[in-house]
Simulated scan of single mutants.
Amino acid sequence: MSRRDSPRPRCQSCNLPSQLCMCAEIPRVETRTRFLVLQHLMEMGKKSNTGRVAVQALANARLLVHGALAEPLDTAVLSEPGTWLLYPDGPAAPADAPAPRQLVVLDGSWSQARKMTQRIPALRTLPRLVLPPPPPGLLKLREPTHPAGMSTLDAIARAVAVLEGPEAAAPLERLAALRVQRIAECGTLN
């Protein structure tokens, strides 16, 4: 295998090539809302995955993996009172509903997220937080396949802005922009 074909060493935490590691840049963000990131198994090793970085940044967050045969998903956590689903399709929760105490965020492609909502019945019963359309100029790696598409980290930052204010979301927004920049730099490394 030539030097060019050999895999570059990756940071075990942020999953970027070691020389682009952004772990020192990850802020610690306190929120009232607990975030439960439900990651599709196929997302775990992708350098473009932002769910794991979001969980590292959020003091009140937990990551669960869906699709691992050895560890079936314990859906009891989805039935906790005050649990909502961050999802762009379906009916939004009523405007007068109390804010969620826990927000479930699906981390995967649109196809994977849709399948998770179909295969995990508890997700279909949750009230939904539907975000407004993404702002123009939002940095992204590629065009989303869904009109409301954005990275998991961007979606969490926008949800924090809606639920807890723009000041609370600002460190996550900066982290999302840095992540896009670092992933773009991956393509320029020799």
Rank of each mutant, 00 (worst) to 15 (best):
P100E: 03
L163S: 06
A157M: 10
T117S: 04
P121A: 08
V65Y: 04
A169L: 02
G149L: 04
P133H: 09
P136L: 06
V180G: 00
P166Y: 00
A57W: 11
L131H: 04
T125S: 15
E143W: 06
A97R: 15
G108V: 07
L78F: 03
A57S: 12
T145W: 06
Q112W: 09
Y87F: 15
A122N: 09
G108I: 06
R174G: 01
P134V: 01
A95K: 14
A161M: 00
P133I: 07
L172I: 02
P100R: 02
A170I: 02
E164Y: 07
T117L: 03
A155G: 14
I120Y: 11
A57D: 11
P72K: 13
I183S: 05
P134T: 01
R174Y: 00
G67Y: 02
A68R: 14
P147K: 10
L172P: 04
T75D: 12
P134C: 00
R182T: 09
S151H: 05
A92F: 06
P81C: 04
A122M: 07
A59M: 09
G90Y: 05
R119V: 00
A93T: 12
Q112F: 01
D107H: 10
A97V: 01
P132V: 12
D89N: 13
L63G: 01
Q118D: 13
S79C: 11
R182E: 05
L73D: 14
V130D: 04
P127W: 04
M116D: 12
P133R: 09
R114G: 04
L58K: 04
I120F: 05
A57R: 12
S79I: 01
E167Q: 14
T152K: 13
A168L: 06
I156P: 11
P127G: 06
L73T: 13
D74G: 03
A57Y: 11
L64E: 15
A159R: 04
L129H: 09
E71G: 00
D154P: 00
Y87R: 10
L138G: 08
A168E: 06
T152D: 11
R179I: 00
Q118H: 14
A61S: 14
P147H: 08
L103V: 07
A161L: 00
L86H: 10
R128K: 14
W110R: 06
A155K: 03
A57N: 11
R142D: 08
A155Q: 07
Y87V: 04
Q102P: 06
W84M: 03
L78W: 02
V160Y: 01
G67F: 00
S79H: 10
A95R: 15
W84F: 15
W110H: 04
P132T: 13
R62G: 05
A61Y: 10
L63T: 02
L63V: 07
P133D: 11
L172W: 08
T145G: 15
L138S: 10
A95H: 12
E71T: 14
V130G: 05
T75N: 03
A57L: 09
D74S: 13
P98D: 08
P91L: 12
A148W: 13
W84D: 09
P127E: 04
P144V: 08
A113P: 04
E164C: 07
L163D: 05
E143N: 13
E167C: 00
P127T: 03
V65H: 07
E143Q: 15
Q181I: 00
L126A: 01
P98A: 05
A148F: 10
P121L: 11
N60L: 07
Q102R: 15
P166W: 01
